[in-house]
Design a protein around this nucleic acid. Sequence first.
DNA 1: CTGAAAGCGCTTACAG
DNA 2: CTGAAAGCGCTTACAG
Lengths: 346, 346
Amino acid sequence: MGRLTLKDVAEACGLSRAAVSLVVRDSPRVSEQTKVRVRQVMAEMGYVYDRAAANLRTRRSMAVGLIVTNVRNPYFAELSMAIEQGLQGAGYTLLQGYSYDEPDKQRQLISAMVEHRADGVIILPAAGSSAASLQMLKSSGTPHVLIARQVKGYDADYTGADNVRAGELMGEHIVGLKPRSVAFIGGPMSSTARKDRYRGLAKVLQQAGVAISKQAQHTSESTPSGGEQVMRSLFLENGQRPDVIVTYSDAVAVGVLHALRDSSFRAGRDVAVASFDDVADARYQEPPLTSVATFADEVGGRAAQLLLARIGDPDRPFGSLIVNPELQVRQSTALFQAEVPSDWRR
Amino acid sequence: MGRLTLKDVAEACGLSRAAVSLVVRDSPRVSEQTKVRVRQVMAEMGYVYDRAAANLRTRRSMAVGLIVTNVRNPYFAELSMAIEQGLQGAGYTLLQGYSYDEPDKQRQLISAMVEHRADGVIILPAAGSSAASLQMLKSSGTPHVLIARQVKGYDADYTGADNVRAGELMGEHIVGLKPRSVAFIGGPMSSTARKDRYRGLAKVLQQAGVAISKQAQHTSESTPSGGEQVMRSLFLENGQRPDVIVTYSDAVAVGVLHALRDSSFRAGRDVAVASFDDVADARYQEPPLTSVATFADEVGGRAAQLLLARIGDPDRPFGSLIVNPELQVRQSTALFQAEVPSDWRR
DNA sequence: CTGAAAGCGCTTACAG
DNA sequence: CTGAAAGCGCTTACAG
């Protein structure tokens, strides 16, 4: 026996296929009494609605693609879960893929999702994505929204934190620490989020006459080990240090704090460390980490909203939903005292 | 104009629909020359293969469902990524859902995946899943494998770490510390992984004559805040402490270490802390965390293998792939000295 | 509500 | 390789 179809259910109920189809979709054209009876028969028979067949007919899949770089990063994990929550309510199932920040893998994923006829795609673009690499989304007419990072020259719905503002908030906090030098380190070079954070930070510091060290452009993966590496090669080895280290993300900061604990300098006393995102881990660091919150749950929820709106009206003008960042001060900068010896090694 | 179909491509190439269909599936019955030409025309026209339509005909979806509880836990994040990697190679796209350890949400996700005609499902069962709650997978004939946690009375393919052995490894390490008392805390009560870890641990400790405190059954969410709560309520508030605290998972241990840093007792000196999983975070803790590795990447890769084998041969006998755990000793237990004052508060 | 029919875009045999 | 045909399991309009 093959799988049960609507026809089998219809026969068992003594109804037409069309009528049963209406029950499945809860049409008002069928009486409540009939619906109850049909549903009961379905349950007894073990009938399973074949969404794939329905999709072919309706030209929708009730599936939405989500492409993120890496869900080991807690920020992206939170983002993914918030997005799933937002879409689940509207009846969508998530097709999820991980690009590992590799444009090639990303291209494969986009292609797979378009072939699966995803009703929409939410994508956190791999660092260094070109507009061309996203073109398939546009040419296939797939509704989509970008999150967290924008792509130069690519016009689309977008939601993310206001990263320039996040950088400014960081800058304002740092100026209050009266440091002699500040370094900005870690994160992928080609990320727009990184550029924006740096820009906001640099602007405020320059206005206050605070120098940013020339190591400012040293990049890494957005991971603890990335942070560790950049720390070791840049500061601990050459024996110099800034008063304040700002990292691209909390993930990077975790590695930076670890490297500092291996040195004789204490974060929060000899050197201030601060970063961006304020993921749950930030407050569990030693010392607890000052971070500018960029609210993954908010961003994820809004991404889902934007996509649903775009699916509902493919011709609406592109929109952006920008989430306001907030500074969260903790001990990694609270205890900072500017007047300490300037030699790095003891 | 609607979407392009195989018919449009066939007309543009002057071939039959059937021939073009063979090209798409790279059949040897079509000459290389023709394939090249057809593919070029497709690219020029911007044709997108409609997998949904093909699926209806072939009765496969080339999509596999993955249900995990929560991807904020780094162990589950690594697991998810390893599984995606393993399935991607075989041409599958992932339908992912998060159960939040809630059987109801899990049921909805299973139902959605079966309706989408997933070719298979990999599921990390919500704590407290009954055999009945997974029955839909079986009755619909969906190939599936359980990961990380088993479900009592439910026979299926399974892969996970050997949690009893993990507990034993932990026990052997702890016995070497010569503690007077040991507590096992945190994690969801009804998780089989928790029970197995505790069982292995208790067995080895009892054989060595080491007491396990009666707080052994205190449970929590498998999160840092869960660990924090259970620590505060159980130990710090009543002023007593064991020599060794074993937590259900690294996630819980993060909260425990945090609570200890807020107290006057130092982990690794006044009290040993150790846990399970050895996620990447473990070595970035302060102090670095002793943990029994349970290898999410291995488990994920094998889950993918098991599912592919099951899809290939639905009638094969159920199998288990058990991953061997390994103890990773770090400073959270390395510096432990048993001879310290036994009062908890200073 | 019914019932017959067309169609979504593919795949699959089949005779040539 | 072709070409006509059937079919995957639904939905949708239509006349009744």
